[in-house]
């Protein structure tokens, strides 16, 4: 498990030029660039859409680029509804869940990686099996539970169903298996408590995996939309994903403002991804799980 230290293999000598047909590398470049463009062009178009004028989005035909960039659209989104609040709610909820994942998932992963105890297989299996449970199966019972607890329309109501997840536990377990046992044993001999061994010795070794876990948790929670739709009922608790259809007015869909609101969600996540994409790439490679 040498996640952090995987050697970057150079494959330059593996160009296809001399293998398939002359110019195969050139073809590869063209195809790869075209596909990469196909991935980002719709999202770039969303940016263009966000800055178009009302006339441009409501005209009979679509416009590729705005004639003048309507920076005022940003203010219009915030005027139409408290999007600052929605964004803040999204950040609070996703942030709390991420912190919880970072605290609990490694703890559980550590136990499964380094300890042997009765029922270990059964418990691990049961936790992993939760990945197959569609959120719908537990949504209504959760709703009833939270309603009885008076937790609907509150931060705890939005956060608690997602406090830990099987993916994070699995990820951390995979990583912790590679942390040498000797480190912990030496400390154990010196009489360190189990908690200290975990907290001061093992956990610091897993920083790269924690980065992956934190990023994935944050992004996927920012993107969550079904549970907030059901579990919130006032504007104060609304998160940004469920506010996106707000500009679908009866008279017309304000596509420019819908797109601008989408950018409020998309830009922070995209920026975070760009800054940490090295970790994301490793994270996917390491776990192979969403």
């Amino acid at each position: 498990m040498t996640l952090a230290a995987r050697p970057a293999r150079r494959r330059s000598q593996r160009g296809l030029d001399d293998r398939l047909f002359p110019g195969a590398t050139a073809v590869s470049y063209v195809v790869a660039i075209l596909l990469a463009l196909a991935c980002v062009i719709p999202l770039l178009y969303m940016i263009s859409l966000a800055f178009q004028s009302d006339a441009e989005v409501q005209g009979g035909t679509a416009v590729l680029l705005p004639s003048t960039w309507q920076w005022g659209n940003i203010a219009r989104v915030f005027d139409a509804a408290p999007f600052g609040r929605f964004l803040l709610n999204s950040l609070i909820v996703a942030g709390l869940i991420t912190i919880s994942h970072l605290v609990f998932d490694p703890m559980v992963g550590y136990v499964f990686a380094k300890f042997d105890f009765p029922l270990k297989g059964a418990i691990f299996t049961a936790i992993l099996a939760t990945m197959m449970i569609s959120f719908f199966v537990r949504m209504l019972p959760l709703y009833v539970m939270f309603s009885n607890a008076g937790w609907l329309n509150s931060y705890q109501g939005l956060v608690v169903p997602f406090l830990m997840d099987a993916f994070g536990i699995f990820l951390m377990r995979q990583y912790m298996i590679s942390v040498p046992n000797e480190l912990g044993e030496a400390a154990r001999v010196d009489g360190a408590s189990e908690w200290r061994i975990y907290w001061n010795i093992v956990l610091p070794q897993t920083k790269p995996a924690l980065a992956v876990l934190g990023l994935f948790s944050f992004v996927f929670q920012m993107n969550e939309f079904i549970w907030p739709l059901i579990a919130t009922s006032t504007e104060q608790m609304r998160v940004i994903t469920i506010a996106l259809p707000l500009f679908n007015k009866e008279s017309f869909t304000q596509w420019n403002l819908t797109a601008m609101a989408s950018l409020l969600l998309f830009v922070p996540i995209c920026a975070l991804f760009l800054f940490t994409q090295k970790y994301v790439v490793r994270g996917i490679a390491m776990s192979g799980i969403k």
Binding site: R10, R11, S12, Q13, R14, G15, L16, T25, S28, Y29, A32, I33, L35, A36, L37, C39, V40, P42, L43, M46, V219, M222, N223, F225, T241, I242, L244, S262, L265, F266, I269, C270, F273, L274, Q277, V280, V281
Partner: peptide
């Protein structure tokens, strides 16, 4: 991308962006 194309990190990032985007968007 495994052939060591130049700019593959950029290409890889571009291709991964949709995966990071919310299904609502």
């Amino acid at each position: 991308l495994n052939q060591g194309l130049r700019g593959r990190v950029v290409l890889r990032t571009m291709i991964l962006v949709p995966y990071m985007t919310s299904i609502a968007i």
